[in-house]
Amino acid sequence: MPYFTTSDGTEIYYIDQGAGSPVVLSHGWPLSSDAWQREVKLIADAGYRAIAHDRRGHGRSSKTYAGNDMDTYARDLAELIEHLDLHDVVLIGHSTGGGEVVRYAARHGAGRVKKLLTAGAVPPVMVRSESNPEGTPIEAFDAIREGVLDDASQFYRDLAAPFFGANREGATVSQGAADDFWRQGMLVNLAAAYDCVKAFSETDFTDDLTSLDVPILIAHGDDDQIVPIAAAAEKTITLVKNGTLKVYPGAPHGIAGDYQKALDADILAYLAE
Rank of each mutant, 00 (worst) to 15 (best):
P2Q: 09
S7T: 13
G9A: 12
E11W: 05
I12N: 09
Y13F: 15
Y14E: 15
I15K: 10
A19L: 11
A19G: 08
G20Y: 12
P22I: 15
V23W: 08
V23R: 14
V23T: 14
V24L: 06
R38K: 13
R38P: 04
E39Q: 15
L42C: 07
D45N: 15
A46R: 08
R49Y: 10
I51K: 03
A52R: 13
A52N: 02
R55F: 08
G57L: 07
H58Q: 09
H58M: 05
K63V: 05
Y65V: 15
N68W: 04
N68F: 03
M70D: 04
D71K: 09
T72Y: 04
D76M: 03
L77V: 14
L80Q: 13
H83P: 02
H83N: 08
L86R: 08
H87C: 05
H87T: 06
V89N: 03
L91V: 00
I92E: 03
G97V: 05
V101M: 11
V102A: 05
V102N: 04
G109K: 12
V113M: 00
L116W: 06
T118H: 03
A119N: 15
A119I: 13
M126S: 03
M126P: 00
V127Y: 06
R128C: 02
E130D: 10
S131P: 02
N132P: 12
T136H: 06
A140G: 01
I144R: 08
V148L: 15
V148I: 14
V148G: 01
D150A: 12
A152I: 02
S153M: 02
F155I: 01
R157K: 13
P162W: 02
F163M: 05
A166M: 03
N167V: 03
E169Q: 08
G170M: 07
A171W: 05
V173Y: 10
S174G: 15
A178E: 15
G185E: 06
M186P: 06
V188Q: 04
N189T: 11
N189D: 13
A191Y: 10
A192C: 03
Y194W: 10
Y194L: 02
D195F: 00
D195Y: 12
C196Q: 04
V197G: 07
S201N: 01
T203P: 04
D204A: 00
F205G: 03
T206Q: 02
D207A: 03
L212A: 09
P215G: 10
P215S: 01
L217K: 11
I218M: 11
G221S: 06
D222W: 14
D223N: 08
D223W: 03
P228Q: 09
I229H: 05
A230H: 00
A231N: 01
A232I: 00
T236K: 02
I237Q: 04
T238Q: 07
K241G: 12
N242D: 14
K246E: 12
P249H: 07
G250V: 00
A251M: 09
A251K: 01
A251Q: 07
A256C: 13
D258T: 11
K261E: 11
A262E: 07
A262F: 02
D264I: 15
A265P: 01
L268W: 09
A269S: 11
E273T: 13
